[in-house]
């Protein structure tokens, strides 16, 4: 078989058109080659967190072909500034910063973890040393308390809302002193050490600490518990391509269906991931209202 010069030029034209089409790539193709930068909040040991999340993003990268870089944020709430000031594409956020990110930055909640017990929610707890003789809210007066961070649901918003409900409007005068530990694990440690009479933390972190060292459960007593609030949620920038977000969701939701995915979930101590929705955060909006934190209710619902 021979080819004419006309046929050759047609082939060349087709190749050029194909190349032009490839150059005018859809956003997905761009996103797949560009590195995504995902933030992590300092929930407990940051090195352990980096290791755990590192395995998760490695798995997602392998499945999607999208390179992902993790960056740890020095404190909770920093995400809001980082999204505005830096090239952050998404973050694993606690329910309070997730709510702020959704409502103020228009970010999209993507997926939340499901615990081995089958829950995708957590709770805030207020605890004290068992030998402290503090058992009721009234007995907390004049004591010291360790909060986690002003930008956490379980570590600040929940106790603030609870105290307000009980007629305590000024924590500065109610407690002898209060301070922020920066992480849930540190708030637990502060009470164990006796550096604070009371502490607040996320129940999941407390359970993790107890699993590591069962003597903690014998030393502490939980006084109050919040309603269920969403677990740490992966939120992504609204302007990321829709098919990229869908791809990430699909990979995360299907993790429990593959052997490699199950291995990663095992190291994370999770059963899987579930689809997150803006409405999941209504409880947090309600708490913010009760706590009297103005200007932080939904703008975009």
């Amino acid at each position: 078989m021979t080819t004419t010069p006309i046929a050759n030029s047609r082939i060349i034209c087709r190749v050029i058109v194909l190349l032009l089409l490839l150059l005018a790539v859809p956003p997905l193709a761009f996103a797949q080659t560009r590195e995504l930068v995902i933030g992590i909040e300092p929930e407990h040991n940051i090195f352990t967190q980096m290791e755990e999340y590192g395995q998760l993003v490695k798995y997602i990268t392998e499945k999607s072909g999208i390179p992902i870089r993790l960056t740890i944020m020095s404190r909770y709430g920093e995400v809001l500034q980082r999204f505005k000031a830096m090239h952050l594409d998404g973050a694993f956020l606690n329910s309070y910063t997730a709510t702020l990110a959704i409502d103020e930055l228009g970010m999209a909640p993507i997926a939340s973890p499901v615990s081995l017990a089958g829950e995708s929610v957590t709770r805030g707890i207020i605890f004290t040393r068992r030998d402290s003789n503090i058992r009721r809210i009234a007995e907390m007066r004049g004591k010291s308390i360790a909060f986690v961070d002003p930008a956490t649901t379980e570590g600040y918003l929940f106790p603030l809302a609870l105290l307000k409900k009980n007629g305590i409007t000024d924590i500065k005068t109610f407690f002898s002193h209060h301070f922020f530990t920066g992480s849930h694990a540190s708030a637990i440690s502060a009470v164990l050490d006796g550096r604070a009479d009371l502490g607040v933390a996320k129940e999941l972190v407390y359970q993790r600490q107890v699993a590591k060292d069962p003597s903690i459960a014998a030393e502490l007593v939980i006084l109050e518990e919040s309603p269920p609030t969403p677990e740490t949620t992966l939120c992504l920038k609204q302007d990321l391509p829709a098919d990229l977000k869908r791809k990430l969701i699909d990979i995360m939701l299907e993790m429990d269906q593959s052997r490699e995915g199950m291995a990663v979930l095992k190291t994370l101590g999770l059963r899987g991931f579930t689809r997150a929705d803006k409405a999941d955060f209504n409880i947090v909006r309600q708490m913010a209202k009760e706590a009297g934190l103005p200007g932080r209710t939904s703008k975009r619902q």
């Binding site: 040393r129 164990l192 050490d193």
Partner: peptide, 9 residues
């Protein structure tokens, strides 16, 4: 009173 358990931990 010092929580001696914490020191050991």
């Amino acid at each position: 009173k010092i929580p001696l358990t914490s020191l050991l931990r």
